[in-house]
């Protein structure tokens, strides 16, 4: 179990992490979701003691990371797959970690096999690795000590679709065996398919957290009509909250905070034709996420949903 309590990190006047608290439970995959620069990596670096916190605490299995006698055996950490000496071979990087943790030599071969790096690839220097291979090597290093918890920063970066699928299965199996997995991502869809719990962070602050089911359930109703303006007026008259559904990728849809049946009645009374009316699974989360990213994103989010 990983517990983060009121973690804050300021750089001069800038608050990178602002009073962040959450728990990643054992047996579950916790997705740490947020746009680039939201404070995910800083939070993770603080958790493992690479960055000193301004205030607040982080505990793994009830202890501060710095108090773990041999951290590699208790927490597997992958913060940046490219942060390795480019002149070492993949096998050598694993061997250095294996020796530091005091593990038998065979663990290196077992891990290479687990992450599907061939002996020939393992003998290459890391400067010649693709990002996907570096991620596999990083996962191998994290799993080497058979830890109870994993802290992974954007582990799917650079993996091809098959690789992402592979990692999803790997982490799922790991959590099902009782392990704690905390992984970050800036891609909602990527994290939606694997996480049990979600922690959403934006501009250093947690904006939502809970189980995936809870967060997806609170999404309301998606309604699509060629006459958005008239429907909007009718909803305002009926005193029902709604927003533009940026997540739908078009301008003819609204996300309404009400049951589908009620929305249908409002539309019927107003005489507005509907082309779609359904529970907006996840659309609420996606919109919240798009709002978060809107400030930092270069693309116009209203043009496409593929952000």
């Amino acid at each position: 179990m990983i517990t983060v309590d009121s973690l804050t990190k300021t750089y001069g006047g800038f608050t990178a992490v602002d009073d962040v608290s959450f728990t990643a439970r054992s047996g579950r995959v916790t997705g740490f979701l947020g746009p680039n620069g939201a404070g995910k990596s800083t939070t993770m670096r603080i958790m493992v003691g690479l960055t000193p916190a301004t205030s607040g605490t982080a505990h793994v299995g009830g202890r501060r990371y710095a108090d773990l006698p041999n951290p590699g055996l208790e927490v597997g950490v992958l913060l940046d797959a490219s942060a390795q000496h480019a002149g070492r071979t993949g096998r050598e990087i694993l061997t250095v970690a294996q020796r530091t943790m005091g593990l038998p030599r065979r663990r290196v071969d077992e891990m290479l096999e687990l992450v599907s790096l061939t002996p020939e690839e393992a003998g290459r220097r890391v400067r010649n690795y693709s990002l996907g291979m570096r991620q596999r090597l990083g996962i191998a290093t994290a799993l080497l000590g058979d830890p109870e918890a994993l802290i992974l920063d954007e582990p799917a970066n650079g993996l091809d679709p098959a690789g992402i699928r592979w990692m999803r299965d790997l982490l799922r199996g790991y959590a099902d065996q009782g392990g704690t997995v905390l992984l970050s991502s800036h891609l909602l869809h990527e994290i939606e398919v694997i996480a049990d719990d979600l922690v959403v962070i934006g501009q250093g602050r947690i904006v939502a957290q809970g189980t995936k089911a809870e967060l997806l359930a609170s999404a309301g109703t998606l309604v699509r009509t060629p006459d958005v303006r008239r429907l909007a007026h009718a909803l305002v008259d009926a005193n029902i909250d709604f927003t533009d559904s940026a997540a739908s990728g078009t301008h003819d849809a609204l996300r309404v905070d009400a049951e589908a049946e009620l929305v249908g009645q409002v539309a019927l009374r107003a005489g507005v034709p509907l082309t779609e009316l359904r529970a907006a699974d996840g659309a609420g989360l996606e919109e919240m996420f798009l709002d978060l990213t809107a400030d930092t994103q270069r693309d116009d989010t209203s043009e496409g949903a593929a952000a």
Binding site: P69, G102, L114, Q177, G179
Partner: peptide, 27 residues
């Protein structure tokens, strides 16, 4: 891959001793 993982984790996940600290000579 999942199979390999299951083997290992069934064996060790249940009860764990606190690991010994890393000796300076090893570092």
């Amino acid at each position: 891959t999942t199979l390999t993982l299951e083997h290992e984790h069934e064996a060790v996940r249940t009860e764990r001793a606190v690991p010994a600290p890393i000796p300076f000579s090893r570092i």
